[in-house]
């Protein structure tokens, strides 16, 4: 026998999945939404995407190579995903140095300081977004429409729909009054407002999410429970008083709702393992986001809601387990 045969414990086959292939699927799922935002916001958006991805990968490479002195893990593409998600959380006008700071916070603080992929408690992209939002609020809410490749009808520069409504309600007017005063219907209102890159393309995001479901990369229970909670709460509130509480459709399609629910809340590392845990996690996010939107001082609460529920994940993992065979 000339050749040295391999010997290992069973099983001797492996499914054709790897961390890299899963991350690649997430990237593919984010492509439609990225294309939509680049079409609407033009070169500026493309630059934000490129800068964000490159700086995230670079930060991870530098940290693994020079600080941790371990083999680089950039090959698993998780830094690319973080970069992509971070870019989707930024306005197209974001200056380069803010993106770099965001990448350092996302990869350096939220991910690598915990020990790298799989060890972090908080979703890196959201941590970075919240950090930037609090540190540089003027840059992070500068929704000036940049020159896109296709023009949108009546592009308005200003805050996001959530922000505008919040301001209007804060100044004592009601939603119907605001819409009437600005000569808008509730449909055109959604289309017209400036939004951060990812928010604009809810449909494209949902399309990507369907791809992830088909590829069995993620399970639907977390987004579904978030959406269900949001619809339920906003439905009840808008029925009670439609003048100051926005309705379900508005709440699902504005802000970071779809992006957050489908791509950030479903992050493997920072979401619960069990089905029941996932549903509770989703409901928690839904409740918190609606509370912030209705009663908080920020117009948008998805990031905060996810971060808060991230803290609960370790407990959910201890409390809830899958049904075991032959046991109650």
């Amino acid at each position: 026998m000339g050749k040295s045969l391999l010997v290992s414990p069973s099983p001797h086959l492996h499914a054709n999945v790897s961390t890299t292939s899963l991350m690649r699927d997430v990237i593919i799922a984010l492509v439609p939404a990225s294309i939509v935002s680049v079409l609407f916001y033009g070169w500026a958006a493309l630059l934000v995407f490129a800068l964000s991805i490159v700086s995230c990968v670079l930060v991870e490479w530098v940290i693994t190579k020079y600080l941790m002195k371990k083999p680089s893990t950039v090959g698993d593409l998780s830094a690319v995903v973080t970069g992509l998600l971070l870019a989707m959380n930024l306005p197209a006008t974001t200056p380069w140095w803010i993106i770099l700071i965001g990448a350092i916070v996302a990869i350096g603080v939220a991910k690598m300081s915990f020990g790298g992929l799989g060890q972090n408690i908080f979703n890196p992209a959201i941590t970075a977004r919240v950090f930037l939002l609090i540190s540089f609020p003027s840059y992070m809410t500068n929704w000036t429409a940049t020159q896109g490749f296709i023009s949108r009808p009546d592009a308005v520069s200003g805050a996001t729909p959530l922000g505008v409504i919040k301001e209007a309600i804060g100044s004592g007017s009601t939603i119907p009054e605001y819409l009437a005063a600005n000569n808008l219907t509730s449909v055109t209102f959604l289309q017209d407002m400036g939004a951060s890159l990812g928010e604009l393309s809810s449909i494209a995001l949902l399309l990507g999410f369907v791809y992830l479901l088909v590829r069995k990369v993620v399970k639907a229970w977390i987004p579904v429970s978030i959406f269900a909670t949001v619809i339920l709460i906003s439905g009840i509130f808008s029925l009670i008083n439609p003048d100051i509480y926005t309705g379900p459709v508005f709440n699902i399609f504005t802000g970071g709702m779809v992006l957050g629910a489908c791509f950030m809340a479903t992050d493997y590392v920072t979401s619960p393992m069990s089905t029941l845990g996932g549903i509770i996690y989703g409901v928690g996010i839904g409740v918190i986001v609606m509370m912030i939107r209705y009663f908080g001082s920020y117009p948008e609460g998805m990031s905060f809601a996810i971060l808060i529920m991230n803290c609960v994940v370790p407990l959910l993992n201890i409390w809830f387990h899958q049904k075991k065979y032959g046991r109650k």
């Binding site: 001797h12 086959l13 999945v17 961390t19 893990t73 698993d76 992929l117 899958q322 075991k324 065979y325």
Partner: peptide, 27 residues
């Protein structure tokens, strides 16, 4: 070798695929 050689181990990403696959419902 392509079918059977074990690939290099990397960090657990807590995707839960192992517990989804376990026919005994273990984690």
């Amino acid at each position: 070798e392509a079918a059977t050689k074990r690939k290099a181990e990397s960090a657990c990403i807590r995707c839960g695929r192992c517990s989804d696959a376990c026919p005994m419902g273990l984690e």
